[in-house]
């Protein structure tokens, strides 16, 4: 059952098999949550965005173009929701204590956690458009094309944002002496 492709599961769901959507939830809840978390930097609100993302996807599944990749569509909803959240907040939030990976115990790989924290702090100082491409490229290993599809912008724009984001991040980290 879990081996079924996204498109098969989407079709099953559209035919009324809600259980198939549960498999999609299992498959993508973590990446969707992480997209939101890295963009907004708030653990609880990221969970809420992830929930909203899946509910919107479920409710609008009939409008989904099955020729596209399901995860691209899902990520698109998640990034839009995250951007809406940021607009609502009208601020770039500072890092909260919640950001540390829940996969790790406190005494585990402390250096990595510290490094993650510094990076996340720097990320939060970037323009959200730049932050999103960095998150999608480096945390989710997506190609220019996939990011272009998710953000609905030309690949050229993705590259431009990504390259500028790296440059800005480099300068930020140097300025902070990290």
């Amino acid at each position: 059952m879990n081996d079924k492709s996204d498109s098969v599961l989407v079709k099953e769901c559209l035919s009324g098999i809600k259980k198939s959507f549960e498999i999609l939830v299992d498959r993508y809840q973590k990446p969707v949550f992480n997209v939101a978390f890295r963009i907004i930097n708030n653990y609880d609100d990221a969970a809420e965005i992830a929930q909203t993302t899946f509910i919107k996807a479920f409710e609008n599944l009939s409008t989904f173009d099955t020729k596209r990749k399901f995860f691209s569509w899902l990520y698109r909803i998640a990034t839009n929701e995250s951007l809406n959240y940021l607009k609502a907040r009208k601020q770039h939030e500072l890092l909260s204590d919640d950001h540390v990976s829940h996969d790790q115990t406190p005494d585990e790989k402390f250096d990595d956690a510290e490094s993650d924290e510094q990076l996340q702090t720097a990320l939060m100082q970037l323009n959200p458009d730049y932050r999103i491409v960095l998150v999608l490229c480096h945390f989710h290993n997506l190609s220019y094309k996939e990011i272009s599809s998710i953000l609905d912008v030309p690949e050229k724009t993705v590259k431009s944002r990504l390259f500028s984001a790296r440059k800005n991040l480099k300068e930020l980290l140097e300025r902070e002496n990290i």
Binding site: K18, F21, E22, V25, D26, Q29, K30, P31, F33, N34, F37, Y43, D44, A46, A47, A50, Q51, F54, I55, F58, H99, V100, S101, H102, D103, Q104, D112, S115, D116, L119, Q120, L134, H138, F139, R166, L169, K170, L173
Partner: peptide
């Protein structure tokens, strides 16, 4: 170096209630 650091950032585990909340919303 920065790109490698970004690539090493660990994924954060979502809260345990997330799945249930989503699925319950659907049903």
């Amino acid at each position: 170096s920065i790109s490698k650091r970004l690539g090493r950032v660990k994924a954060v585990t979502p809260p345990s209630y997330l799945r249930t909340t989503i699925v319950n919303s659907i049903y």
